[in-house]
């Protein structure tokens, strides 16, 4: 300790608070063992597949269709979550109504409820003899075991991402902004469109991207309600599991690699969006 103090290292700022080296070392080690090393195994295994083989796997009709189902329906679910999530946030932040706090707490159920539980619950609700399914059946609408069923499950798991991202931003929005807009002659709708929405836009986009990212990788809540017909209601994560069960490791690995790259891209995008969102927050 004493010699260390005397030698006065130049460079990194010294701190009186101890434990930097050991805690950073342990953090990096643990991170590598649990997360980085396993993820790199995926890339190592992918690199063992020849390029032609990889392209053949990824562009096979079944894979392409599964990816299309996963990404397409995730996008649709995220859009619907964006719309309904914004309505929910608006009601929660701006209005007072009975049991508002309970309603607020309920939003987190999809975070807390295990996906398998959500999956069987949604299936029993939307099956033709279920509470909701039996109401829709006379109208000729089938939900369970169709793409519509997948959409319902993806809306369920994605909603809190939009709400919890936008809610604090809207709550922190300075009331004076809207008063200023009104004092300058803007109508209520113009105020919302020109002042409020631009202010919460980064948060809206972040919530949208988070809901989308979650939906793309979702497995548990979807497989019960999906029906899992190849080419119709088979999602990409399920195809990975099926290939794994068939011992077609190369296929599973290649599809997983595509999914993981998509996750990374989304993560990068979300990071950008969050930084933008924070800058907006401080700029106001």
């Amino acid at each position: 300790m004493i010699t260390e103090t005397l030698s006065l290292p130049v460079g990194r700022q010294r701190s009186v608070i101890p434990g930097f080296g050991i805690t950073l070392g342990l953090t990096l080690t643990w991170l590598s063992v649990i997360v980085l090393l396993p993820l790199s195994a995926l890339f190592i295994k992918t690199s063992e597949i020849s390029l032609e083989r990889f392209i053949a796997i990824v562009t096979s009709t079944r894979t392409l269709h599964a990816l299309q189902v996963s990404f397409g329906l995730s996008l649709a679910a995220a859009v619907l979550n964006l719309i309904f999530g914004t309505i929910v946030v608006w009601a929660l932040v701006r209005y007072d109504f009975p049991f508002r706090r309970v309603v607020d707490a309920i939003i987190d159920i999809p975070f807390a409820l295990p996906t398998a539980v959500a999956g069987i619950a949604l299936t029993s609700l939307y099956a033709e003899n279920g509470w909701v399914g039996s109401l829709l059946a006379p109208l000729g609408i089938k939900v369970a075991f169709t793409q519509l069923g997948i959409l319902v499950a993806l809306i369920f798991i994605g909603l809190p991402f939009v709400v919890r991202t936008v809610q604090p931003v809207l709550a922190d929005l300075d009331a004076e902004l809207e008063e200023a807009a009104a004092s300058l002659g803007a109508s209520r709708w113009e105020t919302i469109r020109r002042v409020v929405l631009p202010a919460i836009l980064p948060a809206l986009l972040t919530g949208f991207a988070l809901a989308f990212a979650r939906a793309v990788g979702e497995y548990g809540s979807v497989i019960f309600i999906a029906g899992n017909l190849p080419g119709q209601t088979e999602i990409a994560p399920l195809l990975i599991v099926i290939r794994l069960e068939e011992f077609r490791y190369a296929d599973a690995t290649a599809i997983a690699c595509v999914m993981l790259l998509a996750s990374f891209t989304l993560l990068l995008l979300i990071n950008r969006l969050q930084r933008w969102s924070e800058m907006r927050g401080t700029g106001a």
Binding site: T5, L8, V10, R14, V16
Partner: peptide
Amino acid sequence: AGLDWPDSGEVRFDGQDALARSV
């Protein structure tokens, strides 16, 4: 106080080197 360290120079308490001691 010993919460920061100088890049160069000395700090003495009653003539004794203080930089050698932690806060």
